[in-house]
Design a protein around this nucleic acid. Structure first.
Lengths: 194, 194
DNA sequence: TCGATAAGATACTGGTAGTAGCTTATGAAG
DNA sequence: CTTCATAAGCTACTACCAGTATCTTATCGA
């Protein structure tokens, strides 16, 4: 592994992160090893440890790289129920995807580390709140929903419940019927003016 | 560690489980080691492996031993809101307790193992659903709530959201204000006839 | 009394996080 | 062009732990 030209600084850092991302994609968080990342990056373990204090920290950084940069717009199906189902389905797809799996493994592993949890929480919790709020705002403009519904808690109730399903179900993806149930039994009754 | 009298069968099994429970209480799931349990039980690791196939399996069995046997009755405060807050507070206390912490560590570790997840899920999900249903039934008798609220999904919505808080917050316990928010912004509006 | 069974003791494999210490390429400053 | 601090590269190491193997020996039932 004798390097002819030696990478340094940012270039090396990127190479390591890229290697970590690839390892995450291929073997997942649980089975990712520092030796593996080092080998793939063509460097040595201690080089990694000079930049990130632990395996979890490295993987967290790598995870960030994997996130889609340009998030899609909010769906506009014309009805609140349609929008909600679309948003929830999208969230479900994301959580069931490889990236979602990695996120869940990561969450599971670092849930005792308050510091790193904080970083992840924002990533997780904030994802898409805006979309729910705009969907609600549109519905409010149509007169479908009352003012009382426009709190963050209510807006995110559906995704929160979805996240709970994953917490209970483990790795499996959540069935569409469950999504409909959440929307029809909770989200719509909560938001719709009666 | 030469035993004068050698324990066998059920007696030994109980001793191991007791040791595992104590280790769980003292160091938690994450830091529990099979060597530690064996030492504490005054036996050897392979004896444990003759009974449980893995560390996770042993800890799951030990966790079951830790559960309170006689669950408390459903609170009856006279109002649905009071009952809901009481139930949710109790659930929060349980989840924040050492036993709850162990449960969460366990959940986090085995969430990729569908088989063991199934065992745990019932334990977790079913816990207290009955109480919510009786609280709702009482409220229905008083005319406080409509029929539509009497689905499992709606009945457990508060605990489900609480569980989500733990998923997002990691180890920390959930603040009382959050409990009130869940009750006042979600549970009560969902259930109460308008 | 004897023999099957399972407990006990010990040692081992294999894998991995994280550390240490040395060598050497690199780039910047003089 | 030379020097020198820095950081990359390399190797080897510690410590830890899950799970396995093997042999000895106590126990219990026939």
């Amino acid at each position: 592994m004798n390097q002819v030209t030696r990478r340094r600084g940012a270039a090396l850092e990127e190479a390591i992160l890229r290697a970590a991302v690839e390892e995450l994609q291929e073997v997942g968080y649980r089975d990712l090893t520092m030796d593996g990342v080092a080998a793939r990056a063509g460097t040595a373990k201690n080089v990694i440890y000079r930049r990130w204090p632990s395996r979890a920290a490295l993987c967290l950084a790598a995870y960030r790289q994997m996130l889609p940069t340009g998030s899609d717009g909010a769906p506009d199906t014309g009805s609140l129920r349609g929008d909600a189902l679309a948003l929830l389905t999208r969230a479900n797809d994301r959580m069931a995807s490889p990236v979602g799996k990695i996120l869940r493994e990561l969450l599971a592993d670092i849930h005792t580390d308050p510091e790193r949890m904080g970083e992840l929480r924002d990533q997780v919790a904030r994802a898409g709140v805006a979309h729910w709020l705009t969907a609600l705002a549109r519905a409010a403009a149509r007169g479908e929903v009352g003012e009382a519904a426009l709190t963050p808690r209510v807006a995110t109730v559906a995704v929160d419940l979805l996240r709970n399903e994953y917490a209970l179900n483990g790795a499996r993806s959540v069935a569409p019927e469950v999504l409909a149930e959440i929307v029809d039994q909770v989200f719509i009754p909560l938001t719709t003016r009666s």
